[in-house]
Simulated scan of single mutants.
Amino acid sequence: MKISKKLAKILRHDAESLKLPIDEKGYVPVDLILKMNFFKSLNVDLEHLKKIVETNKKQRFNLKFDNDKKVYLICANQGHSIKKIQNSNLIQLKNYPDDFPDFIIHGTFKSKWPLIKESGGLKKMNRNHIHLTTNLPNSENNFVISGMKTSSNVFIYINIKKCLDNNIIFHKSLNNVILTEGNKDGIIPLDCFERVIDKNDNPLDF
Protein backbone atom coordinates (compact mmCIF):
# COMPACT_ATOMS: atom_id res chain seq x y z
CA MET A 1 0.00 0.00 0.00
CA LYS A 2 2.84 2.39 0.88
CA ILE A 3 4.50 1.77 -2.49
CA SER A 4 1.24 2.19 -4.41
CA LYS A 5 0.44 5.50 -2.72
CA LYS A 6 3.94 6.84 -3.30
CA LEU A 7 3.81 5.80 -6.94
CA ALA A 8 0.41 7.46 -7.42
CA LYS A 9 1.65 10.70 -5.85
CA ILE A 10 4.68 10.81 -8.14
CA LEU A 11 2.74 10.03 -11.33
CA ARG A 12 -0.20 12.32 -10.53
CA HIS A 13 1.47 15.31 -8.94
CA ASP A 14 5.24 15.25 -8.44
CA ALA A 15 6.94 13.96 -11.59
CA GLU A 16 7.86 17.39 -12.95
CA SER A 17 9.14 18.73 -9.62
CA LEU A 18 11.25 15.56 -9.29
CA LYS A 19 12.68 16.20 -12.79
CA LEU A 20 11.23 12.97 -14.15
CA PRO A 21 10.38 13.03 -17.88
CA ILE A 22 6.62 12.69 -18.22
CA ASP A 23 4.78 12.82 -21.54
CA GLU A 24 1.39 14.37 -22.32
CA LYS A 25 -0.32 11.04 -21.58
CA GLY A 26 1.30 10.85 -18.15
CA TYR A 27 3.82 8.09 -18.85
CA VAL A 28 7.18 7.99 -17.06
CA PRO A 29 10.03 5.51 -17.79
CA VAL A 30 9.92 2.72 -15.22
CA ASP A 31 13.70 2.47 -14.93
CA LEU A 32 13.85 6.06 -13.65
CA ILE A 33 11.15 5.33 -11.08
CA LEU A 34 13.03 2.29 -9.81
CA LYS A 35 16.25 4.31 -9.45
CA MET A 36 14.62 6.62 -6.92
CA ASN A 37 15.86 6.17 -3.35
CA PHE A 38 12.41 5.37 -1.98
CA PHE A 39 11.94 2.39 -4.30
CA LYS A 40 15.57 1.26 -4.07
CA SER A 41 15.33 1.19 -0.26
CA LEU A 42 12.39 -1.23 -0.54
CA ASN A 43 14.08 -3.35 -3.24
CA VAL A 44 11.26 -2.70 -5.70
CA ASP A 45 12.01 -4.13 -9.14
CA LEU A 46 10.09 -4.41 -12.41
CA GLU A 47 8.32 -7.63 -11.42
CA HIS A 48 7.22 -6.06 -8.14
CA LEU A 49 5.88 -3.06 -10.04
CA LYS A 50 4.02 -5.30 -12.49
CA LYS A 51 2.32 -7.03 -9.58
CA ILE A 52 1.28 -3.70 -8.05
CA VAL A 53 -0.28 -2.63 -11.36
CA GLU A 54 -2.09 -5.95 -11.83
CA THR A 55 -3.43 -6.26 -8.28
CA ASN A 56 -4.30 -2.64 -7.47
CA LYS A 57 -7.98 -2.72 -6.55
CA LYS A 58 -8.63 0.75 -7.92
CA GLN A 59 -6.71 0.03 -11.14
CA ARG A 60 -4.78 3.25 -10.65
CA PHE A 61 -1.94 2.48 -13.06
CA ASN A 62 -1.22 1.41 -16.61
CA LEU A 63 2.06 -0.24 -17.59
CA LYS A 64 3.20 -0.70 -21.18
CA PHE A 65 6.34 -1.55 -23.14
CA ASP A 66 7.56 1.00 -25.69
CA ASN A 67 8.85 -1.05 -28.61
CA ASP A 68 10.63 1.92 -30.17
CA LYS A 69 12.52 2.99 -27.06
CA LYS A 70 12.73 -0.55 -25.63
CA VAL A 71 11.63 0.62 -22.19
CA TYR A 72 8.68 0.07 -19.87
CA LEU A 73 6.50 3.10 -19.19
CA ILE A 74 3.98 3.62 -16.40
CA CYS A 75 1.21 6.17 -15.86
CA ALA A 76 -1.57 6.94 -13.41
CA ASN A 77 -4.93 6.44 -15.09
CA GLN A 78 -6.48 9.59 -13.61
CA GLY A 79 -6.19 12.10 -10.77
CA HIS A 80 -3.46 14.34 -12.20
CA SER A 81 -2.67 17.88 -11.20
CA ILE A 82 0.26 18.17 -13.66
CA LYS A 83 -1.12 20.60 -16.23
CA LYS A 84 0.57 19.18 -19.34
CA ILE A 85 -1.46 15.98 -18.85
CA GLN A 86 -4.98 16.56 -20.06
CA ASN A 87 -7.13 14.37 -22.26
CA SER A 88 -4.77 12.60 -24.66
CA ASN A 89 -4.94 9.29 -22.76
CA LEU A 90 -8.72 9.46 -22.31
CA ILE A 91 -11.73 8.40 -24.36
CA GLN A 92 -14.15 11.24 -25.11
CA LEU A 93 -17.82 10.38 -24.67
CA LYS A 94 -19.48 12.02 -27.67
CA ASN A 95 -22.79 10.45 -28.64
CA TYR A 96 -25.65 10.90 -26.18
CA PRO A 97 -27.13 8.65 -24.95
CA ASP A 98 -25.31 5.77 -26.68
CA ASP A 99 -21.80 6.48 -25.35
CA PHE A 100 -22.93 7.37 -21.85
CA PRO A 101 -23.72 5.30 -18.76
CA ASP A 102 -27.18 5.51 -17.20
CA PHE A 103 -25.85 7.60 -14.33
CA ILE A 104 -22.89 9.86 -13.65
CA ILE A 105 -22.34 10.45 -9.94
CA HIS A 106 -19.92 12.43 -7.81
CA GLY A 107 -19.32 11.17 -4.28
CA THR A 108 -18.52 13.58 -1.48
CA PHE A 109 -19.16 14.14 2.24
CA LYS A 110 -21.78 15.97 4.29
CA SER A 111 -19.04 18.18 5.71
CA LYS A 112 -18.21 19.39 2.19
CA TRP A 113 -21.76 19.71 0.86
CA PRO A 114 -22.40 23.28 2.19
CA LEU A 115 -19.20 24.51 0.51
CA ILE A 116 -20.19 22.88 -2.80
CA LYS A 117 -23.52 24.73 -2.68
CA GLU A 118 -21.91 28.03 -1.68
CA SER A 119 -19.34 27.81 -4.48
CA GLY A 120 -22.02 27.17 -7.10
CA GLY A 121 -21.23 23.56 -7.96
CA LEU A 122 -18.46 21.00 -8.33
CA LYS A 123 -14.98 22.35 -9.02
CA LYS A 124 -11.75 20.75 -10.23
CA MET A 125 -9.93 22.17 -7.22
CA ASN A 126 -6.20 21.53 -7.76
CA ARG A 127 -6.69 18.65 -10.20
CA ASN A 128 -7.12 18.63 -13.96
CA HIS A 129 -10.59 17.09 -13.84
CA ILE A 130 -13.69 16.62 -11.73
CA HIS A 131 -13.94 12.91 -10.92
CA LEU A 132 -17.20 11.02 -11.38
CA THR A 133 -18.32 7.43 -11.52
CA THR A 134 -21.21 5.37 -12.84
CA ASN A 135 -22.68 3.86 -9.69
CA LEU A 136 -22.59 3.91 -5.92
CA PRO A 137 -19.89 2.20 -3.82
CA ASN A 138 -20.63 -1.48 -3.19
CA SER A 139 -23.66 -1.35 -5.46
CA GLU A 140 -25.09 -4.77 -6.30
CA ASN A 141 -25.20 -3.74 -9.94
CA ASN A 142 -21.74 -2.30 -10.36
CA PHE A 143 -19.03 -2.13 -7.72
CA VAL A 144 -17.19 1.16 -7.99
CA ILE A 145 -13.51 0.48 -8.65
CA SER A 146 -12.32 4.07 -8.69
CA GLY A 147 -13.61 7.62 -9.02
CA MET A 148 -15.28 7.83 -5.61
CA LYS A 149 -14.16 7.17 -2.05
CA THR A 150 -15.99 4.18 -0.59
CA SER A 151 -16.60 6.27 2.55
CA SER A 152 -18.55 8.93 0.61
CA ASN A 153 -21.90 9.73 2.24
CA VAL A 154 -23.33 12.30 -0.19
CA PHE A 155 -24.01 11.43 -3.83
CA ILE A 156 -24.54 14.03 -6.55
CA TYR A 157 -26.29 12.72 -9.66
CA ILE A 158 -25.34 14.75 -12.73
CA ASN A 159 -27.83 15.71 -15.45
CA ILE A 160 -25.83 14.60 -18.47
CA LYS A 161 -28.05 16.30 -21.06
CA LYS A 162 -27.89 19.67 -19.29
CA CYS A 163 -24.11 19.40 -19.06
CA LEU A 164 -23.80 18.68 -22.77
CA ASP A 165 -26.11 21.60 -23.55
CA ASN A 166 -23.69 23.76 -21.53
CA ASN A 167 -20.70 22.50 -23.56
CA ILE A 168 -19.36 20.37 -20.72
CA ILE A 169 -17.33 17.52 -22.20
CA PHE A 170 -16.92 14.12 -20.56
CA HIS A 171 -14.11 11.60 -20.92
CA LYS A 172 -13.51 8.09 -19.62
CA SER A 173 -10.18 6.96 -18.20
CA LEU A 174 -8.53 3.58 -18.76
CA ASN A 175 -9.98 2.40 -15.43
CA ASN A 176 -13.48 3.68 -16.32
CA VAL A 177 -13.55 6.82 -14.19
CA ILE A 178 -15.66 9.57 -15.79
CA LEU A 179 -13.74 12.85 -15.97
CA THR A 180 -14.61 16.38 -16.98
CA GLU A 181 -12.95 19.78 -16.91
CA GLY A 182 -16.37 21.31 -16.31
CA ASN A 183 -17.50 24.48 -18.06
CA LYS A 184 -15.26 27.40 -19.04
CA ASP A 185 -14.93 28.24 -15.34
CA GLY A 186 -13.89 24.68 -14.45
CA ILE A 187 -17.16 23.84 -12.70
CA ILE A 188 -20.27 21.66 -13.02
CA PRO A 189 -22.87 24.22 -11.89
CA LEU A 190 -25.71 23.43 -9.50
CA ASP A 191 -28.31 23.66 -12.25
CA CYS A 192 -26.64 20.65 -13.91
CA PHE A 193 -27.32 18.51 -10.84
CA GLU A 194 -30.12 15.98 -11.29
CA ARG A 195 -30.53 15.11 -7.60
CA VAL A 196 -28.47 14.84 -4.44
CA ILE A 197 -28.95 12.19 -1.75
CA ASP A 198 -27.20 11.04 1.40
CA LYS A 199 -26.20 7.44 2.09
CA ASN A 200 -29.69 6.72 3.46
CA ASP A 201 -31.35 7.94 0.22
CA ASN A 202 -32.57 11.13 1.87
CA PRO A 203 -32.75 14.01 -0.65
CA LEU A 204 -30.61 17.10 -0.03
CA ASP A 205 -31.67 20.55 -1.18
CA PHE A 206 -29.60 22.47 -3.70
Rank of each mutant, 00 (worst) to 15 (best):
residue 41 S to L: 03
residue 73 L to R: 00
residue 23 D to A: 02
residue 162 K to F: 06
residue 36 M to V: 03
residue 38 F to C: 00
residue 97 P to M: 06
residue 49 L to V: 01
residue 87 N to E: 15
residue 28 V to C: 01
residue 108 T to H: 07
residue 25 K to C: 06
residue 116 I to N: 04
residue 148 M to V: 06
residue 129 H to Y: 15
residue 8 A to M: 09
residue 177 V to S: 09
residue 97 P to G: 02
residue 199 K to V: 10
residue 139 S to L: 03
residue 69 K to F: 06
residue 13 H to E: 15
residue 56 N to I: 06
residue 22 I to E: 09
residue 11 L to I: 04
residue 98 D to H: 13
residue 43 N to S: 06
residue 187 I to G: 02
residue 130 I to L: 11
residue 14 D to W: 12
residue 92 Q to F: 13
residue 111 S to D: 09
residue 168 I to T: 10
residue 110 K to Q: 14
residue 82 I to R: 09
residue 161 K to S: 07
residue 111 S to N: 11
residue 70 K to P: 03
residue 32 L to D: 01
residue 25 K to V: 03
residue 90 L to V: 11
residue 206 F to N: 08
residue 15 A to D: 13
residue 118 E to T: 13
residue 76 A to K: 05
residue 156 I to C: 05
residue 145 I to N: 12
residue 35 K to I: 00
residue 37 N to I: 08
residue 113 W to G: 07
residue 186 G to W: 04
residue 162 K to S: 12
residue 112 K to C: 08
residue 63 L to N: 04
residue 184 K to D: 04
residue 191 D to V: 05
residue 138 N to W: 10
residue 174 L to T: 08
residue 89 N to L: 07
residue 39 F to I: 00
residue 134 T to H: 05
residue 20 L to R: 05
residue 127 R to F: 13
residue 14 D to C: 11
residue 29 P to A: 02
residue 110 K to R: 12
residue 102 D to I: 12
residue 60 R to A: 04
residue 206 F to D: 05
residue 93 L to W: 01
residue 113 W to N: 07
residue 180 T to V: 08
residue 193 F to H: 03
residue 1 M to Q: 12
residue 25 K to D: 00
residue 47 E to D: 15
residue 205 D to F: 13
residue 151 S to Q: 14
residue 128 N to G: 08
residue 57 K to M: 11
residue 156 I to L: 05
residue 122 L to Y: 08
residue 54 E to K: 10
residue 196 V to I: 14
residue 25 K to L: 02
residue 123 K to H: 14
residue 94 K to E: 15
residue 146 S to D: 15
residue 157 Y to H: 08
residue 189 P to K: 02
residue 192 C to W: 04
residue 35 K to C: 01
residue 180 T to D: 09
residue 161 K to M: 14
residue 10 I to K: 01
residue 75 C to D: 05
residue 174 L to P: 02
residue 81 S to M: 08
residue 102 D to C: 11
residue 138 N to V: 06
residue 34 L to C: 02
residue 100 F to P: 04
residue 116 I to V: 09
residue 126 N to P: 05
residue 26 G to V: 09
residue 153 N to S: 09
residue 11 L to N: 05
